[in-house]
């Protein structure tokens, strides 16, 4: 029996890319990225507890060009995962399974995630640093 040699589903390489499958794997990727990125939250809190010098160092790291770039990507991943997570919770509750609704909720998630990301950064640039 060569059971281990058998190809396993779902044969992703023979599927035409679809919004549904792309958003599904993006949920996973953003989840893993957020798990790693949450190191920054811990770092920021530990620096705030450690003292003014450590906090100033953390602020310069996170507020620098690369820090801001990573934080922007983190915000995007966060709001995507949050919005798509709500979509998943709706499915868990048994709603929104017919195909047109799945596509509509998919587009709604992408728009909501983009709007929230841009809104947070716009407000941060306008009112932050006070």
């Amino acid at each position: 029996m060569h059971t281990k040699q058998r190809p396993l589903s779902p044969h992703l390489q023979v599927y035409r890319p679809q919004l549904t499958s792309a958003m599904s794997i993006c949920h996973r990727i953003s989840g893993v990225a957020l798990s790693v990125g949450t190191l920054l939250l811990t770092y920021w809190l530990v620096a705030a507890a450690a003292g003014p010098e450590a906090y100033a160092r953390a602020q310069s790291v996170l507020g620098g060009f690369f820090g801001s770039l990573i934080l922007f990507a983190f915000t995007g991943a966060l709001f995507y995962h949050l919005c798509n997570g709500i979509r998943h919770l709706m499915w868990d509750a048994g709603y929104g399974f017919n195909i047109p609704t799945v596509y509509r909720s998919g587009y709604a998630v992408m728009i909501a995630a983009a709007v929230l990301t841009v809104l947070v950064w716009l407000l941060a640039l306008l009112f932050g640093g006070s």
Partner: peptide, 30 residues
């Protein structure tokens, strides 16, 4: 699912709070 539901309001609250506190002085943040 429980942690996901708990985090919906918590993440929104934290993200929008950071807008005003991220760049604030050390003592204000503390």
């Amino acid at each position: 699912r429980l942690t996901a539901i708990a985090m919906v309001p918590l993440v929104l609250w934290f993200s929008f709070s950071l807008i005003s506190y991220a760049g604030a002085d050390y003592e204000v943040v503390r």
